[in-house]
């Protein structure tokens, strides 16, 4: 048997890896491109800021954009403090032991619950038991349960990546634990924490299963968090399922995608500017 020359192997490996990368990028580009190309035709100011007519077959998607923003803001407002707080507690305030293991196991279980099951829980707990009815508040709280484990995990990783020596500097300078966290650890972990939050925003905006159960599908523009509302993602789903208005569906899908992409780009841009300032 002849031995394959290492240089030949190198060549094959390089080509194979390039091929894999190309497949991944092509898939991504074609999905995003397809949706945007099909949807962008219906997107104009009237579409973005108009009211829907005849169940969304015509008109705009303004109420759904507002509902999506409500859901995202509510769930982030709940899950960022809770998630970051848990991550700080687990990494800085609690030595590794059975307690942290139990908590982490719980977080992983929460992360593993299918969103439709969380939706059922949200329905019976927030909508029925707490009498919040079908509302953006119920929906936002339910979605926050879904992204909470995600935010905890990503913040934890980011905090853990801050070198121990940085903390020692803070302690040696007379700092308390809380001061070392707020003045040294969190600023250093911020990029990682932010990345987690940005990905979580994508999940919030795109979530359907649990939101249908908890926020409802009202077509009206919500006036407060206690109103029912329909997010863009749900609108898209209902358009396809119930009305068959596929061009309008692609329009809302494209809006959704463009919104998520622009949130990501702005966040990364801001973060890079911030990073350049500090380091």
């Amino acid at each position: 048997m002849t031995r394959v020359h290492p240089k030949t192997k190198e060549f094959i490996a390089k080509m194979a890896l390039r091929g894999i990368a190309a497949v991944v990028i092509l898939t991504l580009v074609s999905i995003v491109g397809y949706v945007i190309v099909k949807g962008v035709a219906v997107i104009d100011l009237k579409f973005l800021f108009g009211q829907p007519r005849s169940m969304g077959r015509e008109g705009g998607v303004f109420p759904f954009i507002v509902s999506s923003i409500y859901i995202t803001v509510i769930s982030l407002a709940v899950s960022i403090p809770l998630g970051l707080g848990s991550a700080i507690y687990l990494t800085e305030y609690r030595a590794e032991g059975w307690a942290t293991k139990v908590i982490r196991f719980g977080i992983d279980c929460l992360a593993g619950i299918p969103s439709i099951v969380l939706g059922l829980f949200g329905f019976s707990f927030f909508v029925k038991f707490l009498h919040l009815s079908w509302s953006l508040l119920s929906g936002g709280l339910t979605v926050s349960l879904m992204i909470l484990p995600f935010i905890i995990r990503s913040s934890e990783e980011a905090i853990r990546a801050v070198p121990q020596s940085y903390r020692e500097v803070a302690f040696a300078a007379g700092g308390t634990k809380w001061q070392s966290v707020t003045r040294v650890v969190l600023p250093c972990a911020l990029p990682g924490v932010m990345t987690g939050i940005i990905l979580a925003i994508g999940k919030c905006v795109g979530e359907t299963a649990s939101v249908i159960f908890t926020a409802g599908t009202s077509l009206r523009t919500p006036q407060s968090v206690f109103d029912s509302g329909r997010t863009l993602a749900i609108h898209f789903y209902l358009l396809v399922r119930e009305t068959g208005a596929s061009d309008m569906a692609y329009g809302s899908a494209a809006t959704l995608l463009i919104a998520i992409l622009s949130v990501n780009f702005t966040a990364y841009y801001l973060m890079r500017r911030f990073l350049r300032r500090v380091s």
Binding site: S165, E168, F171, A172, A173, G174, V184, P187, C188, V278
Partner: peptide, 19 residues
């Protein structure tokens, strides 16, 4: 905290915080 302020410490490896 006050004790550590009174006894300033320098570590073996220089640690410049990213600030």
């Amino acid at each position: 905290s006050e004790l550590r302020r009174r006894l300033g410490m320098v570590f073996a490896m220089p640690v410049a915080l990213p600030k």
